[in-house]
Design a protein around this nucleic acid. Structure first.
Lengths: 186, 186
DNA sequence: ACAAAGATACCTACCGGTTGGTATGTTTAA
DNA sequence: TTAAACATACCAACCGGTAGGTATCTTTGT
């Protein structure tokens, strides 16, 4: 009888804590992310929350690595379906940012990520993730052209966030298509 | 004898308040921006600060619009020196982001701006600024290609922030040059 | 098999410190 | 004199974190 199937399910609570923390951060911004609010959203007391996460930083970093893990599997599955090696990571990256289920523009995860960029510890996590990925795909995705395409995808994502999510989606699709097409060029 | 020339110079105090608020926000992040710290930095009591700015939000928005004004004049002067009309705004925008005095990557204003993006009120200010600029330069800077170039510049800026300022600057110059060159293409 | 022993998973109650904000006094300039 | 420009003193709310207790689960010894 593991922690998932017994009557008290601490791992499920932990998961709910992580999810609700993300939701609270999306709704009230990272400045409004308080331990009390997270605990209330799950239906646990603050003491219970501190049992799972010894301090706030661990909580936030937990949210973030969780997000990175999802992005990892999303990109890997996307790349597996791509027949052309050259630029395959860049295409998967672009698609994840624009229309991916957990990173797509419509999801509010973006807002969380944005807020998270404020904190140095999280920035380093992101930096390490990207560095590892670039090292892994240097055979197929190095070069200035592909780099700029990835930057443009980041910029589009940033623009979406700052626009208050009321952006014309048709223009976004144009951008996405144009970027994807450009990954085929030398 | 107006407010600038008399011995007590409230408008100068207000200006110092704005500047010091920006500096504090850069040093300690927007989360660490406290009214007390701003007042201390200027040498005014907190009550005095609240005399000039009725609440914190007004103070932060004041900082932000101030920043936007600087960007405005920076871009205008940059455009005035550009002989080619087509893409002139995009080039000025790219240059401001990469190497501009108040918005350049090395300045810490970027970090402040980044943090500011978390708050919806400031995001709207930015959105309105960009919207007005695009309307103003639609004759010379509309089109998908230039749009993507601007997005890439935003992305480069974002990447710089997240990389912890230890980025290889030569690569950044390559990106800048490549983007500028591409504004000349149809 | 089963109870003792101990670890885990919470809750209640609280603390020190900080924050934005206010109410009221005092000085300065016109 | 009078209004603006400050200073002083204070407050209510909140925040991250801790202390100590209780219920529940797991392991261990026999």
């Amino acid at each position: 009888m593991n922690a998932y199937t017994r009557k008290k399910q601490p791992l499920l609570i932990r998961r709910a804590l992580l999810d609700c923390a993300a939701q609270v951060a999306m709704e009230r911004g990272v400045g409004g992310l308080t331990m009390q609010a997270v605990a209330d959203a799950v239906g646990v007391t603050k003491g219970g929350l501190f049992h799972h996460f010894p301090n706030k930083q661990v909580l936030v970093e937990g949210m973030f690595t969780d997000l990175l893990d999802r992005l990892d599997v999303e990109i890997d599955t996307s790349m597996a379906q791509d027949p052309l090696p050259h630029g395959s990571f860049t295409r998967a990256y672009v698609n994840s940012i624009f229309t991916g289920p957990s990173w797509g523009l419509q999801t509010l995860w973006s807002a969380l990520f944005m807020s998270a960029m404020t904190e140095p510890a999280l920035r380093q996590l992101w930096s390490e993730w990207m560095g590892a990925r670039m090292l892994r795909h240097q055979e197929t995705d190095s070069g200035l052209g592909l780099h700029i395409i990835r930057l443009a995808a980041d910029g589009a994502w940033l623009a979406f966030i700052t626009s208050g999510e009321a952006q014309a989606s048709s223009e976004l699709l144009d951008v996405q298509a144009h970027l994807l097409e450009q990954t085929r060029a030398p």
